[in-house]
Design a protein around this nucleic acid. Structure first.
Length: 969
RNA sequence: GCCGGAGUGGCGGAAUGGCAGACGCACUGGAUUCAAAAUCCAGCGGGGUUAACUCCCCGUAUCGGUUCGACUCCGAUCUUCGGCACCA
C-alpha cells in the first residue's frame, strides 16, 4: 500500500547523498576544466529560535539553480556556513554564565540539522563558522591588510581586470612623507602614517547604547534606538576604530554600473553613498583691513589643504548663492566655536552646546520641526563682497558632514529660510526663479507675507540677481564661473562630499574578533597613541578565556577584564604594550566569507590565488533585501581593498544579486467593536497613542477592541470586505510580518513533519515570484503535497504491497502527441529555470501531470525526462522515482533533458480574429498560413461576418500565427 | 517630505503590446464509500442573452492619452509596502 511517504523517501536520499558525498566538490573537481557556477546564500546567524520559513525560500531557490547547473554539466560551488559572532549569544552568556561559544555551537547544530532535513545540496565539507579561530585568523589578517593600506586618490593604474582606474589602496610603506614630518623623526612619521591608514583611530561622538553595553554604527541606530531590540542610544565622545570607506565612495558608486543587480538595490546604495558636488569656501575671520591682506596672500599662496585658524571653511553645493549669504552656522561641536564666541554670548553658547551634547539622535529628530540655535557674537567676512556675516551655532548643522560649517542663504534653502525667519535674519534673494516656476510643497509650507506679498524660499535653478558682476548668469554657468574664480583667488575649490561616513568598526563586546593591534604604553602605563600590529604569523589572536561576561557599565570594553597575560606584553627592548580591547563588529566576519568558501581549509593563506581566479566572482548571491546597503557595501569595500592590494583579481565580489521577498503570516480578518460590543467600520479606527489602548476611534479617541473573524463572517463588497451580517460595517483584511508577539510564525520543522521537505520547498517556490513579498497559506502547502502525491501515483503503484512501478507505466514508444507535450514541457521548464521563474516552472509540470496521469499506458521514455525536470525542485521524490524507473545511481549529475524544437511545431494553430481590436472569432489555420488564406477564412466566419457586413474594411493587421484584426469604417 | 517597488477573481498568482484570469488554493455540485478521509469528474469575475458553453456588454486601483489593438507604453491622481529623512 505504499502511498507517497515523504518521510521515508527523504531520509533515505539524504542518507544516500551524505554517504556518497554527492555534492562535495573536491580539490580536483574544483580545478576541472568545466564551466564554473558559484552560488551563494547569505549565510544565517544561528539564532536560538532555529530556522524560520524565510530561510528556506532563498536556500531552495539557490539549491534549484545548483542542481540544475550540475545537470547542465557545470562544476558547482554551493557552500554554507554560519555568521555566528554577535550579541544574542553574549547576552545568553551574561544571563547564564555559559561561554558564548557553547550556545553558539549548539545553535549551529540545530541549524545544520534543519538545513540537512530540507535536502539542500550544500558541500558540507566547506562549512565553517565566523567564530572558528581558523576562520577569524584570516579576518584579523585582512584587518591587518586594511591597516597596512592608505588610499592614494591620484594614483592611475590598470587592474588585473584590464580596466583603468584612478585611485588605489597602496601599502603604507609607499606613503610619501612630507619633509616637515620626516624632519621631526620616526615617531612623527609613524603618527603621520597612522593618520593615513584605511583603519584608523578617531575620537568622535558615537552612539553609545548603555543597555547593550556597546557602541553602534549609525546604520545600526534607528530613530535613536538600537536596530536590535530598540534600546535607547546616547551620543558620547569615544576613541574608536574607523575604516575609511569614504575613500572608496566613488568606486563603490560607479562600479555598481556593471553589476547584474536589481536597479532598486543599486539606487539604494547610490543614495546611501549620497555623492554631492560643490565647493569649499573660506570665510575670513578678522577685521576688514586684514581681510584685504588675507585675500592678497591667498591669491599668491593658493587654497591651503588645512583651513588654518584665521578662516571658517564651509562646504556648499551652491557657490552661486554666495551673494545671498546673510549668516553662517557652525555645528555645536565645531572646534572654532570657542575662538569665535564673544564674552557676551559665552554663557548662552556653552549652555546650547551642553544641551546639544546630551541630545540623543532621537531628540534631535523629534525637535527637527523647529530650528534652534544661538549667536556666537563672532563674524566672518564673505569673500565675494567683503560683507561681515554673523556666525551662529545650531544643531541643524552636523559636525560629521562637509566641514561642519555652512554659509546660510535663507532665500534659497528651506532650512536656512526657516531659521532666518525664526531669528529675524535678513533674507536676500539672489536667484530669480524661471517664469513658470511652481514652488515645491516644502517651499509653499514656508510661505510668509511681507507688505501683502507672498514670499517663498526657492531652491531651484534660475537666473542670478543681486550678484555683482555675475548677475544675469544662469545658475549652472554661475557655479562653474565662480568656482573657477574662487580657485584662482585661493579662496575656494571644488569639493565632493558623501552622505556615507567612515565605518565605525569597533565594539565593546566579548563575542567578536579581537583586533590584532597593540598600544604602546609610557612609563606611567598610559597609551602613547603609538600602535603596533601583530605579525601575520602570530594570528589568530584568540579570545581570552573569561568567566564573567557582565558589561562593565561604562564604554570600557569587556575585554579590558581579560587576564593580564592576554592584555599585556613587554617587547625585548623594554616597550610595554597593551592589547586593543575593542572587538570587531559582526559585519567583519560576513565581509569576506564568500572568499573563504573557495578555499576553506587553507592554513597558509586566506585564499589560494589560483582558486580565486577560478571561482570569483560569486555568480549568484541570494538573500534578503535588509542587507541591501550595509553588508553588501561593507563586503564590496573590503573586496576592493583586497583587489587594490593584489589579493583578488575581480573588482567586485558578487556578479548577480537577487533579493528574495519576505514571507508574511497568513491573512487575518479583523473586526472592530466599541465598548458596547457594536461593530465599527475599520476606516473609523486608527492606532492608539503609545502606552494607550491599541486602537481608538479616529474622531473621539475612545478605545476600540479588535476581534479576529473567520472567512465565513465576511463578504467582499466593492473594494472592501464587510460583515456578512452587517454589510455596512467594513472589516480589515491584511497580512502581517511573522512575529512571535503576533503568534503567526510558521515553523518549518512542523511543515516538514506534516507534508515533507519536498512539499515545503515546492510550496515556497510556487507561492509567487522569488522577489515578491507574499503571505503564507497552509492549504497551499496541502495543494502542493497533493501534486507530489499525484506525481508519485503517475509512476508508482499505490495499490501494490511493495514499492513498484505503476502497471500503466510501460516500455512502449510514445505517441507523437505525448512526445510533443513532453518536449513542450522540457522547453518551458528549461526556460523558466534559466530565468528563475520557479512558480511558473511548477505550473508547467502540473500541466504535464494533469495531461499524462489519465493516459494509460504511459511510456517510460516520457516519464523519465519528466522526473529529471522535477528533480531540482523536489530532489527526494526525483531520486526515488528515478530509481523506481530502473536507474541505479543518483540523478544529480544526469544530463538535463534536451528538447527538439522540431517536435514543438504544431501543424495547426488557432488564431483570434479581431474587428476593431475586439475578439470576434477564432479560425484554425495551418502553421505559417499567409495573410490571404487567413483573411479569407476569417471573413467567412459567421460571427466575424456580422461585424463586417455593411462596413468598409480600411485596413487588415496580420501577425503570422498570432492574430488578424480588421479595421473598419 | 524625498526616493523606489506594487495595485489583476473570494485568495496566491499567470499573461510585459495581440484570445485577461494559466497553475494552485478556497468554494459549489456530482461519482466512489455503510460512512468518512483520500481519490476522480464538473463548475467557478460581474451582468445579460440563446435551442445551443450561443452570442453580447462590462471588467486588470482611478482619470486621461498613444495605438488597428493596452494588464502591458505615456501623463496625472489615489492606495499600499519598503528605504531615507536637517547631508548644506
Amino acid at each position: 500500500m505504499p502511498r507517497y511517504e515523504a518521510r521515508r523517501i527523504e531520509s533515505k536520499w539524504q542518507a544516500y547523498w551524505e554517504t556518497h558525498r554527492t555534492f562535495e566538490l573536491n580539490a580536483e573537481q574544483a580545478r576541472a576544466d568545466q564551466e564554473k557556477l558559484y552560488v551563494l546564500d547569505m549565510f544565517p546567524y544561528p539564532s536560538g529560535e532555529g530556522l524560520h520559513v524565510g530561510h528556506p525560500e532563498g536556500y531552495t531557490a539557490t539549491d534549484i539553480v545548483c542542481r540544475y547547473g550540475r545537470m547542465r554539466g557545470k562544476k558547482v560551488l554551493h557552500p554554507m556556513g554560519w555568521d555566528a559572532f554577535g550579541l544574542p549569544a553574549e547576552e545568553y552568556a551574561i544571563r547564564t554564565g555559559t561561554h558564548p561559544a557553547v550556545k553558539t555551537y549548539e545553535n549551529i547544530d540545530t541549524f545544520r540539522r534543519q538545513l540537512k532535513m530540507l535536502g539542500f545540496s550544500y558541500d558540507w565539507s566547506r562549512e565553517f563558522s565566523t567564530t572558528d579561530p581558523d576562520y577569524y585568523r584570516w579576518t584579523q589578517w585582512i584587518f591587518l591588510q586594511i591597516f597596512d593600506t592608505w588610499y592614494d586618490p591620484e594614483f592611475a593604474w590598470t587592474g588585473p581586470d584590464g580596466k583603468s582606474r584612478q585611485g588605489k589602496g597602496r601599502p603604507i610603506s609607499e606613503l610619501p612623507i612630507p619633509p616637515d614630518v620626516a624632519a621631526q623623526g620616526e615617531t612623527a612619521v609613524r603618527r603621520y602614517q597612522d593618520k593615513n591608514r584605511l583603519a584608523y583611530q578617531h575620537e568622535a561622538p558615537v552612539n553609545w547604547c548603555p543597555a547593550l553595553g556597546t557602541v553602534l554604527a549609525n546604520e545600526e541606530v534607528i530613530d535613536g534606538k538600537s536596530e536590535r531590540d530598540g534600546h535607547p542610544v546616547k551620543r558620547i565622545p569615544l576613541r574608536q576604530w574607523m575604516l575609511r570607506i569614504t575613500s572608496y565612495a566613488d568606486r563603490l558608486a560607479n562600479e555598481l554600473e556593471e553589476l547584474n543587480w536589481p536597479e532598486s538595490i543599486k539606487l539604494l546604495q547610490r543614495n546611501w553613498i549620497g555623492r554631492s558636488e560643490g565647493a569649499e569656501v573660506d570665510f575670513f575671520v578678522g577685521d576688514k583691513t586684514a581681510f584685504e591682506d588675507w585675500k592678497a596672500s591667498r591669491a599668491k599662496a593658493g587654497f591651503p589643504k588645512e583651513p588654518g585658524e584665521d578662516v571658517l571653511r564651509i562646504y556648499t553645493t551652491r557657490p552661486d548663492t554666495l551673494f545671498g549669504v546673510t549668516y553662517m552656522v557652525l555645528s555645536p561641536e565645531h572646534p572654532a566655536v570657542d575662538q569665535l564666541t564673544t564674552a557676551e554670548h559665552r554663557a548662552a553658547v556653552d549652555e546650547y552646546r551642553r544641551q546639544a551634547s546630551l541630545k540623543s539622535d532621537m531628540d534631535r529628530t523629534e525637535l527637527a520641526k523647529t530650528k534652534s540655535g544661538v549667536l556666537t557674537g563672532g563674524y566672518a567676512i564673505n569673500p565675494v563682497n567683503g560683507q561681515p556675516v554673523p556666525v551662529w551655532i545650531a544643531d541643524y548643522v552636523l559636525i560629521s558632514y562637509g566641514t561642519g560649517a555652512i554659509m546660510a542663504v535663507p532665500a534659497h534653502d528651506v532650512r536656512d529660510w526657516e531659521f532666518a525667519v525664526k531669528f529675524q535674519i535678513p533674507i536676500t534673494p539672489v536667484v530669480q526663479p524661471p517664469a513658470n516656476y511652481d514652488h515645491s510643497k516644502d517651499e509653499r509650507e514656508l510661505v510668509r507675507v511681507v507688505d501683502g506679498r507672498e514670499e517663498y524660499p526657492f531652491g531651484g535653478l534660475g537666473t542670478a540677481i543681486n550678484s555683482g558682476a555675475y548677475s544675469g548668469l544662469a545658475t549652472m554657468e554661475f557655479k562653474a564661473r565662480i568656482s573657477a574664480d574662487l580657485a584662482a583667488g585661493g579662496i575656494g575649490k571644488t569639493a565632493v562630499n558623501y552622505r556615507l561616513r567612515d565605518w565605525l568598526f569597533s565594539r565593546q563586546r566579548y563575542w567578536g574578533e579581537p583586533f590584532p593591534i597593540w598600544h604602546e604604553l609610557d612609563a606611567n602605563g598610559q597609551p602613547t597613541g603609538l600602535l603596533r600590529a601583530d605579525t601575520p604569523e602570530s594570528l589568530p589572536i584568540e579570545l581570552p578565556p573569561m568567566a564573567d561576561f557582565k558589561p562593565t557599565g561604562t564604554p570600557e570594553p569587556l575585554l579590558s577584564k581579560a587576564p593580564a597575560e592576554w592584555l599585556y606584553k613587554t617587547l625585548p627592548d623594554g616597550t610595554r604594550l597593551k592589547r586593543e580591547t575593542n572587538s570587531m563588529p559582526q559585519w567583519a566576519g560576513s565581509c569576506w566569507y564568500y572568499l573563504r568558501f573557495i578555499d576553506p581549509k587553507n592554513s597558509k593563506t586566506f585564499l589560494d590565488p589560483e582558486l580565486a581566479r577560478e571561482w570569483l566572482p560569486v555568480d549568484l548571491y541570494v538573500g534578503g533585501a535588509e542587507h541591501a546597503v550595509l553588508h553588501l557595501l561593507y563586503s564590496r569595500f573590503w573586496h576592493k581593498v583586497l583587489f587594490d592590494r593584489g589579493h583578488v583579481g575581480t573588482p567586485e565580489p558578487f556578479g548577480r544579486l537577487v533579493n528574495q521577498g519576505m514571507i508574511l503570516g497568513e491573512a487575518e480578518l479583523t473586526g472592530y467593536q466599541d465598548q458596547a460590543g457594536q461593530f465599527i467600520s475599520a476606516n473609523q479606527v486608527t492606532a492608539g497613542p503609545e502606552a494607550g489602548p491599541e486602537f481608538v476611534l479616529k474622531r473621539l479617541g475612545t478605545p476600540v477592541g479588535a476581534v479576529k473573524l473567520i472567512a465565513d463572517q465576511v463578504i467582499k463588497q466593492g473594494n472592501d470586505f464587510v460583515l456578512a451580517a452587517e454589510p455596512e460595517i467594513i472589516v480589515e483584511s491584511r497580512t502581517f510580518k511573522m512575529s512571535k508577539s503576533r503568534g503567526n510564525v510558521i515553523n518549518p520543522d512542523v511543515v516538514v513533519r506534516e507534508y515533507g521537505a519536498d512539499a515545503l520547498r515546492l510550496y515556497e517556490m510556487f507561492m509567487g515570484p522569488l522577489e515578491a513579498t507574499k503571505p503564507w497559506n497552509m492549504s497551499g502547502v496541502e495543494g502542493i503535497a497533493r501534486f507530489l502525491a499525484r506525481v508519485w501515483r503517475m509512476i508508482a503503484d499505490e495499490k501494490s504491497e511493495t514499492i513498484c512501478l505503476n502497471p500503466a507505466v510501460q516500455d512502449i514508444p510514445p505517441s507523437p502527441e505525448q512526445l510533443r507535450f513532453l518536449h513542450k514541457t522540457i522547453a518551458a521548464v528549461t526556460h523558466e529555470l534559466d530565468t528563475m521563474g520557479f512558480n511558473t516552472a511548477i505550473s508547467r509540470m502540473m500541466e504535464f501531470v494533469n495531461e499524462m496521469t489519465p493516459q494509460e499506458p504511459r511510456p517510460k521514455s516520457i516519464l523519465s525526462p519528466f522526473v529529471l525536470l522535477l528533480s531540482p525542485l523536489a530532489p527526494h521524490l526525483g531520486e526515488e522515482l528515478w530509481e523506481l524507473l530502473g536507474h541505479t545511481s543518483s540523478l544529480a549529475y544526469e544530463p538535463w533533458p534536451k528538447f527538439d524544437s522540431s517536435l514543438l511545431v504544431e501543424s495547426e494553430v488557432e488564431i483570434p480574429v479581431q474587428v476593431m481590436g475586439k475578439l470576434r472569432g477564432r479560425v484554425k489555420v495551418p502553421v505559417g498560413a499567409e495573410q490571404s488564406v487567413v483573411e479569407e477564412l476569417a471573413r467567412n466566419d459567421a460571427n466575424v461576418g456580422q461585424f463586417l457586413t455593411g462596413k468598409n474594411v480600411v485596413k487588415v493587421i496580420f501577425v503570422k500565427d498570432r492574430m488578424v484584426n480588421f479595421v473598419v469604417k
